[in-house]
Deep mutational scan, measured.
Amino acid sequence: TTEYTFTDDEEARRAIEELKKRGLTFRYEKHGTTWRVRVD
């Protein structure tokens, strides 16, 4: 499991789109302004 942290909404959304394109399994949660994206 790899975890990424983003504080920029645009950056987080781009990363999420990219992961979807690659067909990877991931989860994300947003805490205030911080996004945590975990890739299995």
Results as ranks from 00 to 15, higher is better:
Leu24Glu: 05
Gly23Thr: 01
Tyr28His: 03
Glu18Asn: 09
Tyr28Leu: 11
Val39Leu: 07
Val37His: 01
Asp8Arg: 06
Arg27Ser: 15
Thr7Gly: 06
Glu17Trp: 10
Glu29Lys: 06
Tyr4Met: 09
Thr1Gly: 11
Lys20Thr: 10
Ala12Gly: 04
Ala12Pro: 00
Arg22His: 08
Ile16Pro: 00
Glu17Tyr: 08
Thr7Tyr: 14
Val39Met: 04
Arg36Ile: 15
Glu17Pro: 00
His31Thr: 13
Glu11Tyr: 05
Val37Pro: 02
Ala12Glu: 01
Thr25Pro: 08
Arg36Val: 15
Glu18Asp: 10
Arg13Met: 14
Thr34Gly: 06
Thr5Met: 10
Lys21Thr: 08
Asp9Lys: 09
Glu18Ala: 10
Phe26Ser: 02
Asp8Tyr: 03
Asp40Thr: 13
Asp40Met: 14
Gly32Met: 03
Val39Ser: 02
Val39Ala: 02
Glu29Ala: 06
Val37Arg: 00
Phe6Pro: 01
Glu29Phe: 12
Thr5Cys: 13
His31Asn: 13
Thr25Met: 10
Tyr28Glu: 03
Thr34Trp: 06
Phe6Met: 02
Thr2Gly: 06
Arg14Tyr: 07
Lys30Pro: 01
Phe6Asn: 01
Asp40Gly: 11
Thr7Asn: 09
Phe6Val: 00
Tyr4Asn: 02
Glu18Gly: 07
Thr25Asn: 13
Arg27Asn: 12
Val39Lys: 00
Thr25Glu: 09
Tyr4Trp: 13
Thr34Ser: 06
Arg13Gln: 10
Leu24Ile: 12
Thr1Tyr: 15
Phe26Leu: 07
Arg14Phe: 07
Tyr28Phe: 10
Thr33Val: 07
Ile16Tyr: 02
Ala12Lys: 02
Leu19Lys: 00
Lys20Phe: 11
Thr2Glu: 08
Gly23Gln: 04
Glu29Tyr: 13
Tyr4Gln: 03
Thr25Ala: 09
Arg38Phe: 15
Val39Asn: 00
Glu3Leu: 12
Glu3Cys: 15
Asp40Pro: 09
Arg14Pro: 01
Arg38Trp: 15
Arg14Ile: 09
Leu24Lys: 06
Thr34Ala: 05
Asp9Asn: 06
Ile16Arg: 00
Lys20Leu: 11
Leu19Val: 03
Glu10Leu: 09
Asp9Ile: 12
Glu10Lys: 10
Glu11Ala: 11
Asp8Met: 04
Arg27Lys: 10
Val39Pro: 02
